[in-house]
Amino acid sequence: MKYNSLGLPVKESEELVIELNGLLSNFQMYYQNLRGLHWNIRGKRFFDLHLKFEELYNDSQIKIDLIAERVLTLGGTPLHTFSDYIEHSKLQIGKNISNDVEAIQLILESLSILLQIERVILNKAAEINDEGTNSMMSDFIAEQEKTNWMLKAWMEEEI
């Protein structure tokens, strides 16, 4: 078995790069959706949600950079074109959403998909003792689970 300079198996690291680039693409779509929600939200909850969406897209921007840098660390090249992001993303595109409930629902659906992808990466990273990727995914998952819980709590007031 061949190992890279990090002491990780080359073949499995290359497979992780593919998975991480998929996550990167999905995060780019998530980020752009959040920007659109931030710009287009209307209604009585505008002030609260406008700020919340900004908080979420700023956090996503940081995560996007971390994912791309992990791809580079593992010896890959991060995807960086809109066509790549569209091709590799599983997220719904949220176009012209101004309603608060629709906006939160889009975020919840997106988080669910991101969490699924991150768990796959977490497991694959654990199999090859890639603690760097594993730790990053673990941190992402913990934060997103909390965001999911909070947004679901917000949605319950509508029921």
Rank of each mutant, 00 (worst) to 15 (best):
Q105T: 09
E118H: 00
I104E: 11
L66R: 07
Y85A: 12
K95F: 11
L79I: 06
L51E: 09
N129W: 03
Y85E: 15
E109G: 03
Q61G: 05
K44T: 12
N123A: 13
R42W: 05
S98V: 14
L114Q: 07
E55K: 08
A125C: 00
F53E: 02
L49C: 09
T73S: 10
G43R: 11
N99F: 12
A68G: 09
N96L: 08
D130E: 01
Y57V: 08
I107A: 10
G43P: 08
K63L: 12
I86F: 14
L115C: 02
Q105F: 02
H80P: 02
N58S: 13
S110F: 04
V120G: 01
L51H: 05
S110M: 01
L51K: 12
A125H: 02
K124S: 06
D100S: 12
V101H: 13
H50C: 09
L106P: 00
Q105R: 13
L37H: 07
E127T: 11
I121M: 01
I64Y: 09
E118S: 13
G43A: 13
D130C: 01
N129V: 05
D65G: 09
V101Y: 08
L108Q: 08
E69G: 10
I107S: 01
I97F: 07
L108K: 05
H88L: 15
K124N: 08
I104W: 12
I86W: 13
A126K: 10
Y57N: 12
E87K: 15
E118V: 00
Y85V: 05
L37P: 06
R45M: 12
D84M: 15
L51N: 00
E69Y: 05
S110L: 06
I67K: 05
E109Q: 14
R70H: 11
D84V: 03
K124W: 01
N129H: 06
R42C: 13
L122T: 01
G75F: 03
